[in-house]
Design a protein around this nucleic acid. Structure first.
Lengths: 344, 344
DNA sequence: AGAAAATATTGGATCGATCCAATTAATCCC
DNA sequence: GGGATTAATTGGATCGATCCAATATTTTCT
């Protein structure tokens, strides 16, 4: 495999000159430049080895994505909301001609310690120490969906405001009897929180979900309702049976507040199965926007969690060095066909 | 930023010993090992710099995906069939703990020349020379969807067999009047190929699409039909208007053979719009399998192009060095609700 | 205790390219 | 044509770690 030294020898110049032909062609005489180029061609030399170049001044031109928690690479591509987020990152990559690297780092197995990238975007982390390797490597990094204090850049959406938007929308339509579908933190069986018990953070999954709950509570309180009286079903985001459970435990609810989109869509499916007409007999609001939400029947009203925009911003933070940035994006309610006034 | 040399100094040992503590801990005395580990901890040294390590013996533990043609990173995430393929690659990455790198290399701008990966998977290429940088770098690579001769590994599905399967299915159901929706190669306006003119390769897009056409022709010929008599609409995969054109130019067709899934789904939508009942008045067969195909109404009968499996195999070829492998996977017909006997 | 064997540690060279200061060659001007 | 400028080229040091052969240390055994 030819090296720069071989090219230099063949062309009868020094390594430095050969190097200059590739790195600073303008400072080398045209005649010499051509001689070196010919030698390179003859030897099948492709240009400076990126590996060696890297060692000298470490720009890789790639951005590393660390999927949340126990997820592998394929999980992150499969999850529709995360997929939207990746699309946002990808757009910025395309603008900058950078590569997108998805790094599996389950149980901190060293992916972050050894990945060849210019910076990291940590998908929703559970403990800040997951980012330690990035900090120690002095590489820029951003954490998603949580505020990690004043020293760490973060990008998230105001989930509390999002929850508020969703619940207020239903209240304005006239709903008074709700059901809430929240997330479990990690694995575990679906849980039912009956009405009448105060709601602590354990009734929702990650920090961002707990904020949604606070938002719901706020809007309910404005209408004189107590969230403690609202039944909550807490399940995995992809658990299809959870929708059935929700309808079983809250048969008189006229509206369902769901913390996920897929959960919301699953609720629409379950309602159809039971011949409950949405939105006539039941209104459903999801959380996060994905193309499937617009295509479901009926189209799902949902809070846009701005996944793609979060991705774009996070990527830009990595590539534009600067002070710590803590972005809090406002959510947006997308009103579609799954919500309406409750039936008399 | 501490280096291995700093750690060695602080611990009072040589660089080599310090290096051994990380690379071959078993050959260094326990006492010394601990002293070095402490020094490392004290300095915040995280372990050998991956960049330097790389230079010495270049394993990166990452696999590079080069999206087809003019696509950027985001296009490749957005395209649903390519997304399935990426999922397959990702699964193998997870098995091996490797990273997945999506490399934008539009108009050969050097992405492949400089990417830090262990090998490349080229999404459908147009000319073999797109792979030259990979060959010159002596990195393993695979091309998808085309046979690139005996010296280059390739993974593809037998498109001709797939086309045959689709067309024969419709013929066995009793259909005799067809319409074909094919792809344009590159950009350009939707094209209509009226019946009665011989069909050359220009009636379909890439090589793989031309093979589908041959498969259709073969099955039709067995039923005594000439593909030259079948109207063809050639459009972009995502062109919604193409379905309308197809129905306009072939109002008496009882079955549509579509070279793409999204095209097939678009056809279902257009039929619904025109109140043509599928499959009662019109049968539709797509090509390639994605989750959306099962969820459309009616669920789309389609040929499984094994995108995910192609991805798994391609990734394995990269990581298991060996002789050139040329994989040709058999397609499979997934019968769903969009095909039925034609109405009397 | 002393020689032999086994085990630990070390300095130097290397991976492939880039940068810098110093040297050499080319150009300018009177 | 010769001295002063300017431009082009070069060797050596460097990036951070790893490998190898050589040396130093410890352990084993008689």
């Amino acid at each position: 495999m030819p090296t720069l030294r071989d090219v230099a020898n063949k062309a009868g110049v020094s390594r430095s000159t050969a190097s200059n032909v590739f790195a600073h062609p303008e400072i080398v005489r045209a005649e010499v430049r051509e001689r070196v180029a010919e030698a390179a061609l003859a030897l099948g030399y492709l240009g400076p080895d990126p590996k060696a170049k890297l060692l000298r001044h470490g720009k890789v031109n790639a951005i590393g994505i660390v999927p949340p928690g126990e997820w592998g690479v394929s999980d992150s591509l499969r999850n529709p909301v995360y997929h939207q987020f990746l699309l946002g990152v990808a757009e910025t990559c395309d603008e900058l001609g950078a590569s997108l690297v998805i790094i599996p780092d389950r149980n901190g197995n060293g992916g972050v310690r050894t990945a060849l990238v210019d910076g990291f975007i940590f998908g929703r982390i559970e403990h800040l120490h997951e980012t330690e390797p990035a900090r120690l490597r002095r590489l820029p990094y951003v954490v998603m969906d949580v505020d990690a204090g004043p020293d760490v850049s973060s990008v998230r959406v105001d989930s509390r405001a999002g929850g508020y938007l969703a619940a207020r929308h239903l209240i304005e339509l006239g709903h008074r009897r709700f059901g809430i579908m929240s997330f479990l933190r990690g694995f575990g069986p679906t849980r039912y929180h009956p009405p009448g018990v105060p709601r602590g953070p354990e009734a929702a999954g990650m920090a961002t979900d707990q904020e949604k709950l606070l938002g719901y509570a706020e809007a309910l309180a404005e209408a004189g309702l107590d969230i403690a009286d609202v039944p909550i079903v807490q399940a995995q985001p992809w658990d299809g049976d959870a929708a059935a459970m929700m309808l079983d435990v809250a048969p008189d609810a006229t509206a369902i507040l769901s913390m996920g989109v897929m959960q919301g869509i699953a609720m629409l499916d379950e309602a159809r199965r039971r011949e409950i007409s949405v939105p006539r007999d039941l209104s459903v609001v999801g959380f996060n926007e994905i193309p499937e939400a617009a295509k479901s029947t009926p189209a799902l009203t949902t809070v846009d969690g701005k996944a793609a925009e979060k991705g774009r911003i996070a990527a830009r933070i990595i590539f534009e060095p600067g002070p710590v940035r803590r972005e809090l994006l406002p959510p947006r309610l997308i009103m579609r066909a799954s919500t309406a006034q409750p039936r008399r």
